[in-house]
Amino acid sequence: MTISLYDAVIPTQLQIIAAVRELVDEAKAHCEEKRIPPEEIIGARLIEDMLPFSYQVKCCREHSLGAIEGVKEGVFTPSIAPPPEDWAGLYELLDEAKTGLEAISEADMEGFIGQHMEFRFKEAAMPFTAENFLLSFAQPNFYFHATTAYDVLRARGLRIGKRDFLGMPRMKRV
């Protein structure tokens, strides 16, 4: 059995985007229940020199749909725009990622295979094939930021667990 680039990327990104959206739901509910100002969670960091929860959520969009948009253009440069400062902005990014990922076809993804593309940031440029960029750079970054968003919430006392991070797995239908 072979696995397509689409199968290796899109379904799992949709799964984790949905899970991160539910994490935002949990964070918002936690703030409301505990009467915590939203900015205390939205701006929360694991450690002082790490970027905040909002940035981690922003990067989930950036390294999923944004990476694929970069592949289409042949260049991916991550956005340096500040992350959202409210729940609505976080939801907007995640919903945009979901809608955009759902619109990508298997044929689109397979058409990327072998294409040259570059990651560019500041003075750095890293050449890739599209599939190597998605699988060895964008996807690990995507998981890093989703995991860090989860970790920030755990560190702030939210009662969440591994299932909250995983979301809904794609199980065999019986």
Results as ranks from 00 to 15, higher is better:
78 P>E: 02
41 I>S: 09
158 L>S: 08
29 A>P: 10
149 A>D: 06
38 P>Q: 04
75 V>A: 00
59 C>V: 00
62 E>V: 09
159 R>V: 13
47 I>N: 13
6 Y>I: 06
162 K>L: 02
161 G>K: 12
111 G>K: 02
103 A>H: 05
149 A>P: 02
138 A>D: 00
8 A>I: 07
85 E>Q: 11
62 E>P: 01
131 E>V: 12
166 L>N: 10
24 V>I: 04
154 R>E: 09
153 L>E: 02
17 I>M: 01
33 E>F: 08
168 M>S: 10
47 I>H: 14
131 E>N: 14
173 R>Q: 13
113 I>A: 02
98 K>L: 07
20 V>D: 04
107 A>E: 15
3 I>F: 15
84 P>H: 05
72 K>R: 11
71 V>N: 03
55 Y>G: 11
146 A>P: 04
118 E>N: 14
173 R>F: 06
109 M>R: 06
132 N>V: 13
37 P>I: 08
101 L>H: 00
167 G>N: 03
58 K>C: 06
99 T>G: 12
174 V>F: 11
133 F>W: 13
57 V>H: 09
150 Y>P: 07
48 E>S: 15
21 R>V: 06
101 L>S: 05
89 G>Y: 05
62 E>I: 00
114 G>L: 01
160 I>N: 03
46 L>A: 05
79 S>D: 07
8 A>E: 08
60 C>I: 08
94 L>R: 03
19 A>G: 08
61 R>F: 14
84 P>F: 02
40 E>M: 14
26 E>L: 14
118 E>F: 13
38 P>C: 10
151 D>N: 14
86 D>R: 00
133 F>Q: 11
136 S>C: 11
109 M>S: 09
13 Q>T: 07
95 D>L: 00
56 Q>M: 04
117 M>Y: 05
94 L>S: 06
81 A>M: 14
23 L>W: 07
150 Y>H: 09
27 A>W: 05
88 A>E: 11
116 H>R: 15
165 F>R: 02
140 P>E: 11
156 R>E: 11
153 L>K: 09
96 E>Y: 04
28 K>E: 08
1 M>R: 10
86 D>V: 03
17 I>V: 15
139 Q>N: 13
81 A>W: 09
41 I>V: 15
127 P>C: 04
153 L>F: 03
106 E>F: 04
70 G>H: 02
33 E>N: 13
37 P>Q: 10
82 P>T: 13
6 Y>H: 15
97 A>Q: 02
169 P>Y: 06
151 D>R: 12
145 H>N: 02
15 Q>G: 10
76 F>P: 00
13 Q>I: 03
169 P>W: 03
131 E>W: 12
136 S>Q: 14
174 V>W: 10
147 T>V: 09
136 S>V: 09
59 C>K: 00
106 E>M: 08
